[in-house]
């Protein structure tokens, strides 16, 4: 598995990366609670060296949407 974003989510959520895909969201993944989300935001910002604003964080309601948001910021994921 070479997908950097999936691996990041897998690490923070403590879920096997093979169980994650672009449709993974807080609604279908109990590990993705607000504490984990806090960790996700920090991890994404550190790993990709970017700053996320509120609108961008609000948008990231699934891994696919997180990917889309990061791409829009010029991050290759």
């Amino acid at each position: 598995m070479s997908d950097a974003l999936l691996n990041l989510f897998a690490d923070v959520l403590e879920v096997d990366a093979s169980k994650l895909n672009d449709n993974t969201s807080p609604d279908n993944t109990s590990q993705w609670d607000s504490l984990a989300a806090m960790g996700l935001v920090v991890a994404i910002e550190e790993k990709f060296g970017i700053q996320l604003n509120t609108k961008e964080i609000m948008k990231m309601t699934s891994i696919g949407l997180a990917r889309e948001t990061l791409r829009a910021k010029g991050v290759a994921v």
Partner: peptide, 17 residues
Amino acid sequence: YRFARRNIFVPLGGYRK
């Protein structure tokens, strides 16, 4: 609860320590 999380908690900075 989901509505509040998406539209109140997150915009108020809930994901910032």
